[in-house]
């Protein structure tokens, strides 16, 4: 049980290719992703539940959902 919950799926942004359009922000149900100073999107790992809505919406397809060690 513990071993399973030790890893969670989270969104990761490839910041080098993010165009800071904010499409991901609009669809995130948990407000877990924001555009930092107009430069790139950033994920709040505490809030993100890895639902993948942002990844689906991102026009540049720079978000991936990966297992993250907590």
């Amino acid at each position: 049980m513990n071993q399973i919950s030790a890893k969670r799926r989270k969104a990761f942004v490839d910041e080098a290719y993010c165009v800071a359009c904010g499409c991901c922000v609009k669809v995130c149900p948990l407000k877990a992703i924001t555009v930092f100073k107009g430069i790139t999107a950033r994920v709040d790992r505490e809030r993100c539940v890895g639902c993948g809505k942002c990844a689906k919406e991102c026009p540049a397809s720079v978000i991936t959902i990966q297992e993250a060690a907590l």
Partner: peptide
């Protein structure tokens, strides 16, 4: 052809405003 807002990837206004923000950063 691609995702609905693909234009935003190469939109000149989007690129320009991001450049301004990056420069300030």
């Amino acid at each position: 052809l691609f995702k609905p807002r693909s234009w935003c990837v190469y939109c000149p206004m989007g690129t320009m405003t991001q450049l301004i923000c990056k420069a300030r950063g």
